[in-house]
Design a binder for these strands. Structure first.
Length: 513
RNA sequence: GGUAGUGUAGCUCAGUUGGUUAGAGCGCCGGACUCAUAAGCCGGAGGUCGGCAGUUCAAUUCUGCCCACUACCA
């Protein structure tokens, strides 16, 4: 019985087009999912779309269409992005689906029955011009309201509240006893810091007079539920029939760690008698040319164009290599092109072609068996053993960039190994010993590339499959028995040539991007 | 104002459970080579590891204070 592994991304909010942040989170989750699949886990990768709420309702109104029609349109764009990026999600949940609504209502009813939800009143200041509630934070320093809000009136509104505060002691204790709940660890400290202050109960409803585009409260038809009980529940509603709860990892951005994922969600689950997710993997934000990615700057979407110019694999590699999970990273045309040319084209792609050409020239395209075994060969094999160990460690900590860094040390070493062996000289030697060295050289590079391509499949599925096929090897569906240094490439027929990462002439990018 | 993170070579960043000459990639300079996507290899220049103080035989790594930037909170 293979171990199951349930991993999710945050669901994207259906207001606007997909951008780099959306893309990265999917890629990171997908790489982890593919890696676990190769390790033999029964993986379930979930992503989806958050489709309710004020903004969606407003935008649909402005366009004079039904909200459902609007989100259906948005969903097409987001799902296309998944296809473009090669994301291997097993499911796609939309919060307007019946299967989701049923679970949300079931949750709400159960909590209401058990007394965890109550009706409360709250007095607020409301700006009719901005159609939003204001807090003291919005005031001018002198206590007056800024002009942009127009007339500000005091309103009293009844809403339903979840007794969040009563779970605070439990949560503090849970975090103390589960130091790996939030990865990276320094993020967990921030959550604990947040929990030093007493929490308020969580408002979970909006009256239909203000918001109709949402899931109706099962115990009061005049209200819909608001934001978190709807959005967070997707992780559970999508797998309710599969018995996959609790999730192994929720991949999220740092902006929605605290309080939603680290506070609301575990407390909601606790109240329902369900386990919290096993871990939250929190990534940072991308800047673009050292500037905040934003819709107004128009820089966030344009980065996705590299998928079409350089391929999804290169894009995935760049994102994984450049961002240390947890930290912020910067996306720039210069660094993208550098990574593409240097890491992918020169170090890896060119190495493949060196091998194919030499095997073609000297062995009629059939990989020789290793004959000589000297310190150069032993060194390369020892480096692989070391590389593989580091790689697994890095991936287990979800530090994909470290894993790739380590792997490129090995790729570099193969290039250096070829120089040291100088097969073009060996080929001209009449000595039998030199012929044996030539055999070994090409056999070792072939085997090294097989290992690299295998272990890189989760990051660059298409390019690595192509690499394996071009050295005459099948594409494995599992790591089992595939990561030891072996002689399986012997007598494999290689392709004549293979350009994995061709030089790309870029259309002159806008100077600002 | 509080809390956290970051501050290491020109640029982007690793790393150091405290210990000999601090690392990588890119960029730059020089060299040798030619199997290859003018790729690859070797060598070199370049750093008071943010500042100050403390602990220690020894600190870039630990502690305290300070400075700068970022994020969250107020």
């Amino acid at each position: 019985m293979p171990r199951s592994f349930y991993i999710t991304t945050a669901i994207d909010y259906a207001n606007g087009a997909p951008h780099l942040g959306h893309a990265y989170e999917k890629v990171l989750a997908d790489v982890i999912a593919r890696y676990r699949r190769m390790q033999g886990c029964q993986v379930h990768l979930l992503t989806g779309l958050d489709e309710h709420g004020q903004k969606v309702q407003q935008t649909a109104q402005q366009r004079n269409i039904e909200p459902q029609v609007f989100v259906d349109e948005i969903a097409v764009g987001f799902r296309q992005m998944l296809v473009d990026l090669g994301i291997s999600n097993d499911d796609y949940i939309r919060t307007t689906e019946t299967r989701h609504k049923k679970v949300v209502q079931d949750f709400l009813q159960r909590l209401h029955d058990q007394g965890f939800i109550y009706l409360g009143t709250k007095t607020d200041w409301y700006s009719t011009r901005q159609e939003q509630f204001l807090t003291d934070k919005d005031r001018n320093p002198d206590g007056s309201w800024p002009d942009i809000y127009g007339e500000v009136t005091q309103t009293t509104e009844e809403n339903y509240y979840f007794k969040l505060s009563q779970f605070q002691p439990w949560l503090v204790d849970y975090l103390a006893t589960h130091p790996d709940f939030v990865n990276p660890r320094f993020r967990q400290k921030q959550v604990l810091e947040f929990l030093k202050e007493p929490m308020n109960d969580l408002c979970i409803s909006r009256p239909k007079t203000r918001l109709t585009w949402g899931i109706e409260l099962p115990f009061d038809r005049n209200y819909v539920t608001y934001v978190w009980f709807d959005a967070l529940t997707n992780y559970y509603s999508a797998v309710v029939d599969r018995g996959l709860w609790p999730a192994d990892v929720h991949v999220i951005g740092k902006d929605i760690l605290s309080p939603p994922h680290a506070v609301y969600w575990p407390c909601m689950l606790k109240a329902l008698g369900l386990d919290p997710p096993k871990q939250l993997l929190v990534h940072g934000w991308w800047t673009i040319n050292n500037q905040k990615a934003s819709k107004s700057a128009g820089n966030a979407g344009s980065t996705l164009s590299y998928v079409s110019t350089h391929g999804a694999d290169a894009f995935r590699y760049y994102l994984c290599r450049e961002m240390v999970v947890g930290q912020d990273a910067d996306f720039s045309a210069v660094s993208f092109v550098n990574r593409y040319k240097a890491d992918l084209g020169n170090n890896l792609g060119n190495l493949v072609n060196r091998l194919l050409n030499m095997v073609g020239r000297n062995y009629a395209g059939s990989i020789p068996a290793a004959a000589a075994d000297e310190p150069l060969e032993q060194g390369l094999r020892a480096l692989w053993t070391e590389t593989e160990a580091k790689l697994h460690k890095a991936i287990d900590e979800y530090q994909v960039s470290h894993a790739l860094e380590t792997l490129w040390v090995f790729i570099s070493a193969m290039n250096a190994y070829i120089e040291a062996r100088a097969p073009w000289k060996l080929a001209k030697s009449p000595e039998a010993a030199d012929r044996a060295r030539l055999d070994s050289c090409l056999a070792h590079v072939a085997e090294g590339l097989r290992l690299v391509a295998t272990v890189l499949l989760p990051v660059m599925p298409v390019a690595c499959a192509k690499l394996l096929v071009n050295i005459g090897r099948p594409v494995p569906g599992s790591f089992a028995g595939q990561l030891q240094w072996s002689q399986v490439c012997t007598l494999s027929k290689v392709a004549e040539a293979c350009i994995l990462f061709p030089p790309v002439d870029l259309p002159a990018p806008p100077a600002s991007v």
